[in-house]
Amino acid sequence: MDFTVVAKNIDFLILQGLLGFGNFVGGTFRLAIPAIVLGFILGIFIGLARLARTPWIRIPAMVYVEFFRGVPLVMVIFWFWFIIPLLLRVPLPEYGVALTAFVVFEAAYLGEIVRAGIQSVARGQAEAAMSTGLTPAQTMGYVILPQALRNMIPALVTQFIVLFKDTSLASIIGYVDLTKAAEIVNNREIRPFELYLFIAVVYWLCTYSMSRYARYLERRLTPG
């Protein structure tokens, strides 16, 4: 084992692969962080829509969730890559395709987590809030969502971790993330063991800090 291959290519692996600074379009963080933020925002709307009383809000949201949960992520990425440019008659950049595919796909899962989280809050909470004269929107914002979000943390973080690791799938359309960067280096150096062990450690360090932070957050948000 000779880890000098990692040391020699550390700039490319970390700056290009992990962070996205370099000559290629890429970066695991540059894809994962906006995908998590935007996917979660879309997921909140989808989760709320799933609980709407009006059928023409609730049913499309349900179809959306069932559909995107039922197809593979790789296929969704391919669609955005091949089909959307055909339909729109414009070429789409890799970054735009990858980010859109992840946001659209993950929002389905996150929407289900949000829905379950809201439903986990006892019905009496909403009844109490509305009885004191809060509007339905104020009830959701000040009473239901704060409790729901706390209950959602474990499931949310699991999904964020899955998403973070799944960004390696963006390499199939030429997006140079950490996995693709290791592959590029390996094609030149033929040091698969060292390179793939190194990126495994990098992925693990990132996801482990996410789960540690989640545990801290959960504790901090536990009242009393």
């Binding site: 006892a122 009496g124 909470q125 009844e127 109490a128 809030a129 009885s131 004191t132 009473v143 704060p146 409790q147 706390r150 948000l221 009242p223």
Partner: peptide, 13 residues
């Protein structure tokens, strides 16, 4: 109209 519930329904957070 004030309403008081059997299970109190205070906001736990």
């Amino acid at each position: 109209i004030g309403f008081v519930f059997q299970q109190f329904n205070l906001y736990p957070h």
